[in-house]
Simulated assay, not measured.
Amino acid sequence: MTLCRPRTLLTWLLSGMLAAGASPVMANETDQAVAACLKAWVTHPFGDRPSYRVLGTSVKVFGIGSSSADTEKTTSPALVVVNPGVNVMGGSVIELLNPNGWYCLRSTVSVMGGMTIRLACGAQLASLSGTATVMGNNADQKGVTVMGSTTVERVGCPEGNRI
């Protein structure tokens, strides 16, 4: 059995993730993502052809880069597609803070670092990516984690009522 050297593995992962994070997302791909999330939720308030917002890609390498946050609080259900979050050797937080938000998470990738998804109490979350964990912690089964951790943290819930 041949093992991949850590440096080779990291180079391979970084090049694939950065290429995926940098590529433009076509409307058709986003529509397919929305359809998959609606199917995952089974029951939702949006109908067959819902309108939605897209939250930009978050990329952090060595703690440097952009984060994603949805801080808009709506009075009715809002469908939001969350483009990929990539974190390499650092910490990253994606904030999804609309209690009426229905968040369709395209993907998260965390390599040798920690990624936290802060999700408003009452918000819904569906993840489209397959899950994989290599030498790390990904108890919530959201995205791909290699030698790191990915967690979903509920915020704004009354004490004792966290989901």
Rank of each mutant, 00 (worst) to 15 (best):
74 T>R: 10
20 A>L: 09
124 Q>N: 13
93 V>D: 11
86 V>E: 03
42 V>I: 09
17 M>F: 09
34 V>A: 04
72 E>K: 09
17 M>P: 00
116 T>C: 04
112 M>V: 11
75 T>S: 15
57 T>P: 02
11 T>H: 06
117 I>Y: 03
103 Y>T: 03
118 R>M: 07
29 E>M: 10
163 I>H: 12
132 A>R: 10
113 G>L: 01
161 N>W: 13
157 C>L: 06
126 A>H: 04
29 E>C: 12
77 P>R: 03
108 T>R: 01
100 N>L: 07
130 G>A: 14
60 K>M: 11
66 S>Y: 06
125 L>Y: 03
10 L>K: 06
116 T>K: 09
142 K>V: 06
32 Q>R: 14
66 S>P: 02
42 V>M: 08
48 D>R: 12
57 T>C: 08
117 I>G: 00
74 T>P: 11
139 A>G: 13
31 D>T: 05
36 A>F: 06
135 M>W: 08
114 G>C: 05
109 V>W: 05
12 W>Q: 15
152 V>K: 00
145 T>F: 02
158 P>S: 07
86 V>T: 11
41 W>L: 13
70 D>C: 11
89 M>R: 10
2 T>M: 12
114 G>F: 04
110 S>Y: 04
48 D>Q: 14
49 R>S: 12
142 K>D: 00
63 G>E: 09
101 G>S: 02
160 G>R: 06
137 N>E: 12
163 I>D: 14
41 W>N: 10
50 P>I: 00
141 Q>N: 15
137 N>P: 07
54 V>E: 04
23 S>G: 10
40 A>D: 06
45 P>A: 05
110 S>A: 15
109 V>M: 11
82 V>C: 01
95 E>G: 07
81 V>T: 08
34 V>Q: 04
104 C>W: 00
156 G>M: 05
33 A>Q: 08
152 V>N: 01
124 Q>W: 08
74 T>Y: 12
150 T>N: 08
161 N>M: 15
96 L>C: 04
97 L>R: 06
26 M>A: 12
